[in-house]
Amino acid sequence: MDKTVNLVKLSVGTESVETLAAWQAEYAARWPDGLPRHVTRMWPKRETEILNGGSIFWVIKGQIQCRQRILRMEEVIGEDGVRRCAIVLEPEIHMTQTALKRPFQGWRYLKVEDSPADLSGTRKQEEPLPAELSQALAEIGVI
């Protein structure tokens, strides 16, 4: 059986899962199939593992808060003539347990076993960590 791997990506400028969904809905309308996409310069080398059921986990305000299943990857040539990868996403956003994440550039691979679990259907969000606890975890390098 083929392995599965996820991606983790900062959602820069996003204030909440709701603003991520609104932004995606606005830009998804530009594509013929109406599906949301994340366009990146680099093509993931582990494409086969990602397309084997992988998701993109979104970091919002320093915490992984949600994920979307990755459907496929498409080549997109920008107006500048540069080849890019459009990561085509399932429109449904799944809320996850929160996980603190330090800032980073681009996207990173995220092992399935290290990925936050989805919240149950009755829970829409987790309570945020108290600021003091969050700061203490950051100071010791946990986040």
Score class of each variant (00 low, 15 high):
77 I>V: 15
82 V>M: 10
58 W>D: 07
26 E>V: 04
108 R>S: 07
17 V>M: 14
20 L>C: 14
75 E>R: 02
78 G>P: 03
20 L>T: 12
29 A>D: 01
118 D>M: 10
121 G>R: 11
28 A>T: 01
103 P>E: 05
54 G>H: 04
53 G>W: 02
59 V>L: 04
42 M>F: 06
125 Q>H: 07
38 H>K: 14
37 R>V: 15
71 L>V: 15
75 E>M: 03
125 Q>A: 10
106 G>Y: 00
32 P>E: 01
46 R>Y: 00
86 A>D: 14
124 K>S: 05
101 K>H: 00
77 I>N: 09
52 N>L: 08
72 R>T: 14
68 Q>W: 08
68 Q>M: 11
120 S>Y: 02
107 W>F: 15
77 I>E: 12
26 E>L: 09
88 V>N: 12
21 A>Q: 12
103 P>A: 03
119 L>W: 09
128 P>R: 13
125 Q>T: 03
68 Q>N: 07
70 I>K: 09
112 V>W: 10
35 L>V: 12
30 R>S: 01
107 W>R: 10
64 I>V: 13
17 V>K: 11
119 L>S: 06
108 R>A: 03
86 A>Y: 11
97 Q>P: 01
82 V>Q: 11
99 A>T: 00
65 Q>M: 13
74 E>D: 11
79 E>T: 02
79 E>N: 08
118 D>G: 10
42 M>R: 14
102 R>G: 00
70 I>F: 08
124 K>Q: 06
48 T>P: 02
72 R>K: 15
19 T>R: 11
37 R>C: 13
104 F>P: 02
59 V>G: 02
110 L>Y: 08
130 P>H: 13
97 Q>C: 00
79 E>S: 11
35 L>K: 15
47 E>R: 11
38 H>P: 04
100 L>V: 00
122 T>Y: 08
49 E>C: 04
71 L>Y: 13
103 P>M: 04
115 S>A: 15
29 A>W: 00
26 E>D: 05
104 F>N: 04
90 E>W: 14
114 D>M: 03
46 R>K: 13
114 D>P: 01
77 I>M: 07
40 T>E: 13
39 V>Y: 13
127 E>F: 09
69 R>C: 13
122 T>M: 11
100 L>K: 00
35 L>E: 14
86 A>T: 11
17 V>W: 07
32 P>H: 01
97 Q>R: 07
72 R>A: 13
109 Y>N: 06
16 S>T: 10
48 T>W: 08
31 W>F: 12
18 E>F: 09
79 E>W: 03
115 S>I: 08
64 I>C: 06
114 D>G: 03
63 Q>W: 00
67 R>W: 10
48 T>Q: 12
111 K>N: 05
95 M>D: 02
50 I>L: 14
80 D>T: 09
90 E>G: 13
51 L>H: 02
76 V>F: 07
54 G>D: 01
41 R>S: 14
31 W>M: 02
115 S>Q: 09
120 S>F: 03
102 R>Q: 02
17 V>Q: 13
36 P>D: 10
50 I>R: 01
45 K>Y: 09
36 P>Q: 10
90 E>A: 15
62 G>T: 06
51 L>R: 04
56 I>V: 15
61 K>F: 01
41 R>G: 12
109 Y>I: 09
64 I>E: 05
